[in-house]
């Protein structure tokens, strides 16, 4: 697997590259600004771009803008956006560019190296992974949407974990229930949200999307 990293702080850029290389992910390019990122994506055609939100020249959210633009140029291009802070607003904007192959995480999460590398692989594989902080924020919105209101508290909890990109087994572990119980919850969620009987992965993404559009 090949990744391109865009992060303006050299310390963090090198750290990220080291972690990825240590887990057999090839770092095709590591750049420090959006222009260089666009060039590297064009040239390298990586499996995933890992992009910091705040970059030159204005040091606001050009990383996010660059990620969305990259996905406009190459639909479905997997992008994992990292940031020192997370905003639901940004998560929504990112997901508007398509929900597959999108990740949005606090930089803090990189310290859980194993999980971070898992996330990178999941997003590169077309999965959706949102930071638990974003998901928690979104949980405060439950009940605003009629379809959402039909879910039980447990089901919303499961959906929250799904948005964080966790597998059924991981969700079962977190909620201290059996994998079978989780399966039942998930099926019930799919039904209540009127999601088509499609490939399981796609439905998970759709459920998360539905979940995000609750206002």
């Amino acid at each position: 697997m090949r990744a391109v990293i865009a992060e303006d702080l050299a310390l963090l850029r090198d750290g990220l590259a080291r972690i990825l290389r240590a887990h057999d992910i090839d770092v095709a390019a590591a750049v420090g600004d959006p222009v260089a990122l666009a060039a590297a994506l064009e040239e390298q055609q990586p499996d995933i771009a890992i992009v910091d939100v705040r970059m030159p020249p204005t040091f606001t959210n050009e990383g996010l803008v660059a990620a969305i633009e990259a996905r406009a140029r190459r639909p479905g291009m997997p992008v994992l956006v990292l940031s020192q802070y997370v905003e639901q607003l940004y998560a929504r904007e990112l997901l508007l560019s398509g929900a597959e192959g999108v990740g949005y995480l606090l930089k803090d999460r990189v310290s859980e190296v194993g999980m971070f590398v898992d996330t990178v692989r999941k997003v590169a594989g077309g999965g959706t992974v949102l930071d638990p902080d974003v998901v928690t924020g979104m949980l405060t919105h439950h009940g605003r949407n009629q379809a959402m209101a039909r879910l039980t508290r447990r089901e919303r909890e499961v959906l929250g974990f799904m948005a964080e990109g966790r597998s059924n087994a991981a969700i079962a572990g977190k909620m201290v229930v059996t994998a079978k119980a989780v399966d039942k919850h998930i099926n019930s969620i799919f039904m209540k949200l009127d999601l088509p009987l499609d490939a399981d992965d796609n439905r998970r993404v759709l459920a998360v999307l539905r979940y995000l559009q609750t206002d």
Partner: peptide, 11 residues
């Protein structure tokens, strides 16, 4: 303000 609104428990 839009970002803030998304984080609140009241719509």
């Amino acid at each position: 303000i839009r970002a803030l609104a998304l984080d609140l428990a009241v719509p």
